[in-house]
Write a protein that binds this DNA or RNA. Structure first.
Lengths: 215, 215
DNA sequence: CCTACCGATCGGTAGG
DNA sequence: CCTACCGATCGGTAGG
């Protein structure tokens, strides 16, 4: 029941269909392709609203083929979330380690998170917000641990801002209002729709709205 | 194709099962029961993650019976959203018509919206956030019109606050940051979990965090 | 990774 | 509103 079948690469048939020959690292690329396609579809239609056949189709595969790369649909969802969250955390961590004036650091943090939310191939945040609860309990706990690191970093920032007199309040709800405002942008911000408001502009607007003083 | 079958009340069988006799207004009550059950299930599992059989079961019906009250699953979803949004709008409108000091009015507006989001039998806001896009285009447009009224009321409030020097900025993004922060509470606020922080306290905390001056 | 397929489940309907 | 049911679709698998 817990035995992992050793998945071995089957050598592709030659000839037959005159398609461009698969590269050596093809397997990994195909797997990534599945993840990207799945992330986009989950974002647009939700986990339950997306079928394996759609994911396969968007990855130029036949309906059963995603299961060559993933055990089941749940594993695709979990992987989308884990890889996305890890990439996002790396951005946050990088900012937290920088030595910047507090206000600039906050803006960099906001900008980093906006990049994670709205950047290219970053469809996973809406998926996370939307379908976190569809994950099996075990996977959910694992992701939660990553999410807690996120929260701690933001809490530290919010409390520092408050201590420096830049933010009206600190504490849990202050963090939640701040992060909520940013996260909710998943519902309304579209780079191609909000012309003239790119991610830099959005971060600046946000910081200007929340922090005391400044312009 | 567009013909509405005239649904007539079938008189319930008497005797047989010795259950409490159905009241005269039973149909409407049953219909409401379906809506409440569906709203709760949609909130917890999403539209696509919820089956008609679950809705029926939670309403003490057999699997095909919800279709006695609703044409199809989409109509259940749309009705949940429409009734919820209408009830929410009524609360907003009532506050906007009151003659209050601006700060108090804002707090009342926030409180009203929190009531809509977290009050008893108000499961529809998460559903709306979550599954708005699963609605058919026609129904979506209809709901959008209602949502626009919502947005206009909040925009007016935000701009008034800005004009009065109580809010750092006005305009579209200011409204979106404010509303986003509130709406995101759907993801974290639970009355039974956040002990000591009821909806009044939450509204006060919110206003205190966002408005200039005050305590 | 494809072909062919299966069992389960789902939304919905007829007929009372 | 129940009973009995259908066609479609879905996640997943065997076997190559």
């Amino acid at each position: 029941m817990k035995v992992e079948a050793p998945k071995k690469r089957v050598k592709p048939k030659v000839g037959a269909k005159a398609q461009s020959a698969p590269a050596p690292t093809d397997d990994r690329n195909r797997r990534e392709g599945v993840l990207r396609a799945a992330a986009r579809l989950f974002r647009d239609q939700g986990f339950d609203g997306t079928t394996i056949r759609q994911i396969a189709g968007a990855s130029n595969m036949q309906s059963g083929s995603p299961f060559y790369h993933f055990k089941d649909k749940q594993e695709i969802l979990a992987t989308v979330m884990e890889e996305g969250l890890s990439a996002g955390w790396a951005r946050i961590e990088a900012v937290m380690e920088r030595d910047l004036p507090l206000r600039d650091k906050f803006q960099a943090l906001v900008r980093a998170h906006l990049e994670t939310m709205h950047g290219t191939d970053s469809d996973f945040v809406p998926v996370l917000q939307h379908d976190f609860r569809r994950l099996e309990a075990t996977r959910r706990r694992k992701l939660k641990a990553l999410g807690d690191k996120y929260d701690r970093a933001w809490q530290e920032m919010v409390d520092d801002l408050h201590a420096a007199g830049l933010l009206k309040r600190g504490g849990r709800t202050a963090r939640l209002w701040v992060m909520g405002a940013i996260n909710y942008s998943a519902q309304w911000y579209r780079a191609d729709h909000d012309r003239g408001l790119d991610l830099d502009g959005l971060a600046r607007d946000f910081v200007g709205f929340f922090l005391e003083g400044g312009k």
